[in-house]
C-alpha cells in the first residue's frame, strides 16, 4: 500500500438487542484512498460509517483514526476531523449556503475573512458560482445543488477523512454522474490554494448500494453482506469476484436492457 493508514477498523462487531449488525469487520483506509462500502439495505454499511464517526459504539474490536484509538479521541475533535455527507445533505434550513459551508471553520474559531474566502473557493470547487449561491437558503436549491453544498461543507475545515453516506442516491442520473465526476476531480486535485499544508488527496469512506458508483469512485470496494465483509478488492479484482453476493451485484451491471424492437 502506498502510504500510512488514516483509518484502521479491526475486528469490529456491533449488535442491537442480540441482533448482529456488524460481524468482525476489519478494514484499513490509507491516505488518499477512497474505500467504497457496497451492500444492500441492511447490510450494515451505514452503521459502520457511524461507528467510525463515533455515532455508534462497537461492542468489540477497535477503530483507530490517525493512529490513535477512537475511544481516546474527544468525540467532538474526532468528528471535526472527518467531513460528513448524507443522502439529503442535512443542510441547516435556517442558514444561508455560506453559513452552512462555514460551520466547522466557525466552530474552530477561524477569523471571519478566512472563513469567507474558504467558502468562496469551496463553492467554486463544487461548481457553484459564489456570488449567485452564497446568500441562498437550502430551500432555494435543487437536489444536486444541495448535495454540492453538503460536500463543500464537509470539505470546509480540510479534514483528512471524508465520510459519505449514499450522497448521490436521491439525484437524477445526469446530475448524479456530474457529481460523481466532480467528486473524483476534488479527490484527485487534493487541496486547492486555501487548503493549508497538506497537498495530498483526500481519504474517503463512501457508502453506496450502486455497484456502478462503487467501481467508478473506489480505490477499493468493500462488499458487505449481513454485516460481514464479503469481498474486499480493487475495482478490477472485484469484477472477477465470485461470491454469490458479488455475482448478484455484478449481474446488475450486465443487464443491458433495451426496449422491444
Amino acid at each position: 500500500m502506498p502510504s500510512d493508514p488514516i483509518l484502521e477498523i479491526r475486528n469490529v462487531s456491533y449488535a442491537i438487542g442480540g441482533r448482529p449488525i456488524l460481524r468482525d469487520i476489519s478494514l484499513t483506509v490509507h491516505e488518499g484512498e477512497t474505500v467504497v462500502l457496497l451492500g444492500r439495505s441492511g447490510s450494515g454499511k451505514t452503521t459502520l460509517l457511524k461507528a467510525v464517526n463515533g455515532l455508534v459504539h462497537p461492542n468489540s474490536g477497535e477503530i483507530r483514526f490517525e493512529g490513535k484509538p477512537a475511544l481516546e479521541w474527544d468525540p467532538i475533535r474526532l468528528r471535526r476531523r472527518m467531513g460528513y455527507v448524507i443522502q439529503d445533505a442535512g443542510l441547516f434550513p435556517h442558514w444561508t449556503v455560506a453559513a452552512n459551508i462555514g460551520l466547522v471553520p466557525r466552530l474552530e474559531n477561524w477569523n471571519p475573512e478566512k472563513v469567507a474566502s474558504r467558502v468562496e473557493s469551496l463553492l467554486r470547487d463544487v461548481g457553484l458560482e459564489p456570488a449567485e449561491f452564497e446568500g441562498r437558503y437550502p430551500r432555494q436549491l435543487s437536489g444536486g445543488q444541495k448535495q454540492r453544498v453538503g460536500i463543500a461543507r464537509a470539505l470546509a475545515a480540510d479534514p483528512p477523512l471524508l465520510l459519505l453516506d449514499e450522497p448521490f442516491a436521491a439525484l437524477d442520473p445526469i446530475t448524479r454522474f456530474d457529481l460523481q465526476r466532480q467528486f473524483l476531480e476534488i479527490r484527485r486535485s487534493g487541496e486547492t490554494e486555501t487548503g493549508g499544508a497538506t497537498a495530498a488527496a483526500k481519504s474517503a469512506l463512501f457508502v453506496t448500494h450502486d455497484v456502478r458508483e462503487a467501481l467508478m469512485l473506489g480505490s477499493r470496494v468493500a462488499l458487505l453482506k449481513d454485516g460481514a465483509m464479503d469481498v474486499l478488492a480493487t475495482p478490477a479484482e472485484f469484477l472477477a469476484a465470485r461470491t454469490p453476493e458479488a455475482l448478484a451485484f455484478l449481474a446488475s451491471l450486465e443487464d443491458h436492457w433495451r426496449p422491444h424492437e
Binding site: I76, I86, A89, G90, L91, F92, L107
Partner: peptide, 25 residues
C-alpha cells in the same frame, strides 16, 4: 428534522451548540 440534527452531531457540534444554534432557532 432528524437528518439536520444528525449532521449537526456528525459535524462535531456540541449538544449546547446544537441547542442554541440549530434547535432553538
Amino acid at each position: 428534522d432528524a437528518t439536520v440534527r444528525e449532521s449537526a452531531v456528525a459535524m462535531g457540534m456540541t449538544q449546547r451548540q446544537i441547542l442554541w444554534q440549530v434547535e432553538l432557532p
